[in-house]
Design a protein around this nucleic acid. Sequence first.
RNA 1: GGCCACGUAGCCAAGUGGUAAGGCAGAGGUCUGCAAAACCUCCAUCACGGGUUCGAUUCCCGUCGUGGCCUCCA
Length: 508
Amino acid sequence: MKLYDTLTGTLQPLLRSDSPLPRPGERGPGGEGLRMYVCGVTPYAESHIGHAMSAIVYDVLVRYLRWPGNPAGGLDVTYVSNYTDVDDKLIDRAAELRVDALALAEQQIALWEQQQHALNLLPPDVRPRVTREIPAIVALIERLVAGGHAYATLAGDVYFRVRADADYGKLSHRNIDDLRAGTRFDVKEQKEFPLDFALWKAPPPEGAAGEPQWDSPWGLGRPGWHIECSAMAQRYLGDSIDIHGGGLDLVFPHHENEIAQSESATARPFARIWMHNGLVQRDGEKMSKSLGNVVTVADALARWSPDALRLFVLNSHYRSPNNVTDEAMAAATRAVGRLQVALRPAGPAGSASPLPPGEGLGVRGPADTRACFVAALEDDLNTAQALAALFDLVRDINRARAEGADVAEAQSHLRELAGVLGLTLDAPSDVDASATLDAAQFSKLAKQHAVACGDPDVASTIDALLAARTGARAARDFARADAIRADLAAAGIDIEDTPEGPRWSVRR
RNA sequence: GGCCACGUAGCCAAGUGGUAAGGCAGAGGUCUGCAAAACCUCCAUCACGGGUUCGAUUCCCGUCGUGGCCUCCA
């Protein structure tokens, strides 16, 4: 598999002959498999669809790498993603809300974890939090100070010495002079150099009201923004990792500073591949609080299914910006429906197909679909192309089924490949969905059409109405049949007549 | 001001030095009592202007436009 590496600006092979990676169940030379670290959220406010997009991208990468169907035969991946639960924004936000900063973080983390589950995101193997990693962070800072890469000030802050890092700027492809020209710092801080950044922050002179703080060799304080990721990646994955991921907006300064810290401390390459996902836009504009166009994960889940959201994300390349529009989301919703329809059982049992499995499946067939799917993902995780292969298989399945062929095998391929992308394709049960509809409205409909129904629940009422419609059709009373259908449609129930009888579904 | 991406059909969006996947929408057809679903067919010359090349949407330069980063951000 090749992935685009921000550091070199090129596609890099993930698996190199000089660094054989272990298979599932095996242990690598260092006792670890493929090591992947992804920068998680700062839990100071509700997560938005940008966080969801990022999480979905890395989720698919992990699923694919672990999938036995990939050319490497499935890899043992250790996936670490952090929570930065101590941070300026978090402290400011807590002060605004007059709540405890750590409590705010706790609450937001709980919400986001619930949403991650709803989004069918695999939990990372390790979810470290800054507040629980202070010793590792302090140890790393001490190491940097000892090596001359950092210095403490009289105020009790510790700064990273950017000028001591010869290749500072290599990840974001800038040089110190360009960066310096753009600085807007007040130089009242006791920095040696304007670009030096904080590793450890002493409480402000006016007092650290409500700020979390810990003891350290430099006095009370808290970690700076970037050091936590260096420390946590190192603790859980080692000095050198295989993949480091995050949003494109983290390239500078966050990842630039991480690479500076980690490599200054260890003198070893920090990550083999730096992966960055593009950012979500809303109607062509950046999502931001000031524009008031932030779509939270809760908003998104209320409007669109997890599969639709995921398909929307995967329909474009992970490095491109992804523009969320109502129209695009509606298209994704319909597309998910198309995948679901292809997975419906072929027909009534007993009408067993005379064709052996695999026959009649068009020119492509499941094997070719798999090959296209794999080739697409091998090439820098081209999920859009992988999806195209899935839709080709959908067409083949529908066509073959119409011809009476046995499509069960092809369907299981479709289900498996969709699963690699994290698509569940489980349509929520219509009976369940109907429970949320207005029962009174439907019983009124039943009365209107003079249909008797013993059970008051919506699903039973619909079944009774449908039975009446079927009777009307048999009697060629199409006016009555169509009136029932029209009234159900007006109430949000769609009807399809199939060889097995009428099928109803809740319109979403 | 500095750095960097991108600009493909009505919309979303892959991709390639030799005339462009897929999804949604639309048109016609098959099926259906009529629909729906499904299937078949149709629907773009790739922002604009130069250049390199036998040939560019794909490479180079410029223009315009959009977006990102440079300060917090997935």
